[in-house]
Design a protein around this nucleic acid. Structure first.
Lengths: 213, 213
DNA sequence: TAGATTGTTAATCGATTAACAATC
DNA sequence: TAGATTGTTAATCGATTAACAATC
């Protein structure tokens, strides 16, 4: 309740990474302060919305007529976004998408560290992908429990996703990042963040239909 | 305005793919009808929400005490979701993520057909990935215009994403599916659907923080 | 002082939920 | 008829936006 910026809406939370990237850009070009109108202009948002977002995130009040000190705001945002935590995760499913995620170096900055991968294919087990060891699925639950893993990334085909989720839950995981195009049924205490391409495509398709009216 | 199910909210639109998958599952196990309470139970949603969603999508009224005919509801949903269109798209950036998407066979069912890939690396140009030809970036705008492409998928590194977006716009694209972790500045007529991993991670991280309070 | 930007308080808007009559 | 599920109309809720005084 105290340190908790927990009264921040999900929508606002999703805007912050964009702000942050812009702030770092400004900082590296030598700027010292930033104002809500400037950020709003950059992203095509309303000033008042950005003002509210910054007010929630910033640890100090902005200065009327000036704005916010960029370096401090960056710190505050990285904190709120959890980029300073080190969340250790596992990834299950070393197919083409899994391999892509394992090879992506950017996660580390976001506070996400994939420490091991799992696959059911014996040919893959024992190998290394993106510098991460590939282990057998049978070890998944134990591994999570022993290494105190809190996040699992699922990149297996849809038909196996639920089984994998069950194993993760058995391993006392707290959140799942689900790239499989299917719904996962889980206890309500577990957060499932669906990276649903089907949902994204639905939005795209809707837009195109409207255009050709 | 006539055929337009355009008064369907973005949130509802994103729930539909999950419903649809469930409907197909029910159908293949021999069921003929489905009710809102059943779907609601499956996904942990409120009955009334599902009822509203189905009312918007279905071309016929549901039958009190019975529900909806599954086969017809599937047709209606596939229509609303645009799975019956054939949207031809291009993908730019044949790195590990781009390769994963090019290799994914599932898009075709969603009405998305990637007809060509583009990359700036001369070693990749001329090759084939996932059965799709890789062409030079310099041909991108012309290609889009000539082949009447309406969607571009961006999987290049963040620092090149804006240039690529500009080329797509020059090629008269109407929507962009952006996997690069950066904001794209575009005319307001262009829809940009961001597959922002940073935003997803923000949600995950927020949840974990709340848990360990 | 003048003016740009801030924080606060109130209004609007859209999505979700509740209540309930209609119906097979 | 009884009861489950529907569609409709109204209430609630949360996020966005507007209005405006405070301030450097």
């Amino acid at each position: 309740m105290e340190n908790g910026v927990s009264n921040i809406s999900r929508q606002a939370m999703q805007r912050l990474p964009y702000y942050l990237q812009f702030l770092k850009q400004l900082e590296s070009s030598g700027e010292k302060v930033v104002s809500s109108p400037l950020i709003a202009e950059k992203f095509g948002l309303k000033e008042i919305q950005v003002r509210k977002d910054l007010a929630i995130v910033s640890s100090v009040s902005g200065k009327p007529r000036i704005g916010f000190e960029i370096s401090r705001l960056i710190d505050d945002m990285e904190n709120v976004l959890g980029y300073n935590e080190k969340n250790e995760t596992v990834l299950i499913g070393v197919g083409s998408l899994g391999t892509a995620l394992l090879s992506y170096k950017g996660f580390y900055y976001y506070g996400l560290n994939i420490v091991a991968a799992f696959d059911s294919d014996p040919d893959k087990v024992g190998k290394t992908v993106g510098g991460k060891p590939v282990l057998a699925i049978s070890e998944l639950s134990d591994y999570c429990r022993t290494h105190q893993i809190h996040i699992g990334i699922i990149t297996v085909p849809a038909e196996h996703a639920q089984q994998v989720a069950d194993l993760l839950i058995k391993g006392s995981i707290q959140a799942i990042w689900n790239f499989a195009p299917t719904y996962l049924s889980t206890p309500s205490s577990i957060l499932v963040q669906n990276e649903s391409m089907a949902a994204s495509l639905a939005i795209l398709s809707q837009h195109l239909k409207e255009k050709q009216h």
